[in-house]
Design a protein around this nucleic acid. Structure first.
Lengths: 251, 251
DNA sequence: GAGTCAATAAAAATCGACATTTTTTAGAAA
DNA sequence: TTTCTAAAAAATGTCGATTTTTATTGACTC
């Protein structure tokens, strides 16, 4: 560590990374998600070392871990790159998400108990509060971030009773991928349409245990988001190279 | 490398690992899959270093990569372990597999072209040959391995036209997990029932583009395998501790 | 000018020493 | 005996020097 005070004396900083690797993973992930390292761009060890500090192996292991999230790809003896992006890839991700989200939601509605309902009520309430402020045009620092968080929590709560940890894990993986496209498209999706109405409808269907309606609604919900992102994305694409299938520059 | 001849001069040895990390990954993966390192057991760096050779970072990075396959898990500052196994986990994996396999098969049948059919015919033919020999009780070195390979190739061919690389990737991930349970259960599933008949039925339904039947059959196919494995697994479990939920020893 | 090859520069992969944290052991106090 | 504390041991995490591989440059041939 760089500090002279050992970590263990700082107490358990909630959620904060404890090892250099974890910290590097988080910073690098954010830098890829935010587009600081464009899709397909080379990730040189020395460059990252200067940026994040730490030794070679620390950087290397951080990248190995991000490979499991498919945010980093590697070619043998040829180093690492930020994972490429493409409209096709985004389509595939979204298809999978619709598919898995429906499955998980259906199961949750089927077997969810009072605990599940309680959690859902709470998450929906929080999301509503944030979306109200967004809708009223409140200018507040980090509101966008709060919304993203509340939105994720709400959708997680919806499916949290599905009873299959693999389903949850894979769902989370795809959500993160999707979020990358959202951020790359520069769309701040919340204000662009009345998302809250969609959330409300799904919430009601779930609480009424109407699985068919809930699935139908959530598919439409994802479709709507996808449409907005794709529009922004192909626009951003055409600024550079309309014919290009993949996104970003590969120096 | 240990050899004095650089790898590049050996030509592209097909599929052989080119870096020390890759080699370590493959050997460690095999050792976990085969049960040499039991589920939940500690993976000490020094021990692995003696077993596979190489430096600390090499071993470390290999483990980081196997974390992405969920064959290795880590706790911060507390090293690595072989991923735990449990009946519950196996159930979840199998549910997901049925679900995804159906989806992929349906799509393949829907949009698969002549190429797809040709590949499928070829894979089915190979599998048939191997299963004939198995059925006739031919004693041949590596026949079991050949069957596993042909079986995988056949199932891959079935869904190869599904048009979604994420679906294929996740399917492969779950297949590998499933294989771990198969091997741990010590079941050599091929001879235990007339698997070929099932393969034939699925093959015919797929070629006739009868998606509903094909999906129905493949679900039953997976169910049958799961039943056999679970039986053997709970038997093996009861040898140690009938009440245990998770499998293996955690020293 | 296109292509080949060798020398050089750049980058990636590998290694073991060192620092930090966790676990074990031993001894003292209750 | 049990419980707590402190020192010792073991294991993990971190680092930059060294080795190996790939990419680049430029002279040379056809």
């Amino acid at each position: 560590m760089h500090s002279s005070v050992p970590n263990s004396m700082l107490g358990e900083r909630n959620g904060a990374p404890r090892t250099a690797i974890e910290e590097t993973v988080e910073r690098l992930r954010e830098d890829i998600l935010s587009g600081h390292f464009p899709p397909g761009s080379k990730l040189r060890i020395e460059e990252l070392r200067k940026r994040y500090g730490g030794g070679v192996s620390t950087i290397r292991e951080a990248m190995a871990r991000l490979m499991s999230e498919s945010l980093v790809v590697s070619e043998e003896q040829r180093g690492f790159r930020a994972a490429p992006m493409s409209l096709r890839d985004f389509t595939e991700i979204s298809d999978m998400r619709k598919f898995l989200e429906c499955r998980a939601l259906r199961k949750s509605i089927e077997i969810g108990d009072d605990d599940w309902e309680a959690q859902l009520v709470a998450a929906y309430h929080k999301l509503t509060k944030v979306e109200e402020r967004l809708h009223n045009g409140v200018r507040e620092a980090g509101l966008q971030r709060s919304w993203a968080q509340a939105n994720k929590a709400y959708h997680d709560a919806l499916v949290s009773a599905c009873g299959n940890s693999w389903l949850m894990r894979i769902r989370a993986l795809l959500h993160r991928q999707s979020e990358r496209y959202l951020r790359y498209s520069l769309v701040h999706s919340a204000p662009t349409r009345d998302v809250h109405q969609e959330h409300e409808a799904i919430y009601k269907a779930a609480m009424e245990r109407d699985a068919d309606t809930a699935c139908e609604l959530i598919c439409r919900h994802i479709d709507n988001t996808v449409r907005v992102i794709k529009e922004a994305l192909s626009q951003r694409l055409s600024e550079h190279d309309a014919a290009a299938d993949h996104i970003g520059k590969a120096p």
